[in-house]
């Protein structure tokens, strides 16, 4: 029996006993291992942050669970069709997008979710870093294999943005806004960022990785001073921490619903939900497109997801890539 499945079995046993004692004999017979091996597994769980009381002649009692994003915790009551049926967890990795891409290249199934507690090379746009300290946030990448044209894949960006908004609304009762193309803000401060990557042939998508970083329990002091945008977290906005496990479960649930809807009916539901959460329509923005800066008034989203900006010369610019700021 692998460490992972042994851990899963013990946690399931604890959950069944609902806070009562679980004898060492019971665990060893369920796992089919010696009592000494059971003790090792319990130690293993303690290292992961589980508080387990051991009383001679009575056995073990689960006192508290850590808010660690272990697959077996997230998957409790996770009723999704596709997203998160398989979850890979890394206590620390370079970047969940890199890991998901590697797994995608070696044929991993659609719906695979890669989660890391900490990233050493969290990715932002154009080589910028996504600050990824441990124990506080969610860094996740979802692998999708949609049968769409590569030219349609950028639409999926809006899907993950809406998924995160819905999870924030459900879990924290806050009103997140979206900033084109897909930052998520609370009171004009960035709370989540998305970075998607595609692996494709000329006429077919091999896979898309939806990368997301959500600031859940990060404190003010954990944000570096030189950030390009003001940032916040759910805990800062609420004044108390949120359960990372519950948030992740809610997020996977919403993305699962949005994705199956997308495959059936296309992008219209997502676009509508996104536009409802965008309060920049009608406002003046400056778009830095690397080679030029466009200033104008936001008109909305084009069919392909481009930001429509009406410039002073009366032209509607279709922006497909760039940094947008209110002016």
């Amino acid at each position: 029996m692998t460490t992972l499945s042994a851990r899963d079995t013990i946690l399931k046993l604890f959950r069944k006993t609902k806070g009562c004692f679980l004898s060492s004999a019971q665990i060893s017979s369920e796992l089919g291992v010696s009592r000494n091996a059971v003790w090792k597994q319990i130690e293993n769980l303690r290292e992961l942050g589980y508080q387990i009381k051991a009383v001679p002649s009575q056995g073990y009692q689960l006192v508290s669970s850590p808010d660690t994003l272990l697959p077996e915790e997230i998957q409790i009551d996770l009723e999704t069709k596709c997203i998160g049926r398989e979850i890979r967890y890394f206590p620390e990795t370079d970047s969940t997008n890199l890991q998901a891409t590697k797994l995608g290249e070696s044929g991993a199934m659609e719906g695979l979710v890669v989660i890391a507690d900490q990233q050493s090379q969290g990715k932002g746009r154009l080589g910028r870093k996504w600050i990824s300290p441990p124990n506080v946030n969610l860094y996740a990448s979802i692998l999708l294999r949609p049968r769409i044209l590569p030219s349609e894949a950028p639409q999926l960006t809006f899907l993950s943005a809406v998924g995160i908004c819905r999870a924030i609304e459900q879990l924290a009762g806050l009103n997140p806004k979206v900033k084109w193309p897909n930052d998520i803000t609370l009171h004009e401060k960035k709370v989540a960022g998305l970075l998607n990557e595609m692996n494709s042939e000329t006429d077919q998508v091999n896979f898309v990785v939806l990368g997301m970083g959500v600031n859940l329990n990060m404190s003010v002091g954990q944000f570096p001073k030189e950030l390009a945008y003001p940032a916040t977290s759910l805990a800062i906005e609420l004044g108390h921490p949120v359960s990372r496990i519950a948030f992740t479960r809610a997020l996977l649930h919403h993305i699962d619903l949005l994705y199956s809807d997308y495959l059936l009916d296309g992008i219209s539901t997502v676009r509508k939900a996104w536009t409802e959460r965008c309060d920049w329509v009608g406002r003046r923005v400056e778009v830095n497109c690397h080679t030029q800066i466009i200033t104008g008034v936001v008109q909305g989203l084009g069919n392909d997801g481009a930001l429509l900006v009406a410039t002073e010369c009366g032209i509607i610019e279709e922006v497909l890539a760039g940094d947008v700021q209110l002016v």
Partner: peptide, 13 residues
């Protein structure tokens, strides 16, 4: 090639 934060790594075939 980037479109709306979807980064497509173009590979030599």
């Amino acid at each position: 090639v980037e479109a709306m934060k979807l980064f497509n790594e173009i590979e030599a075939e």
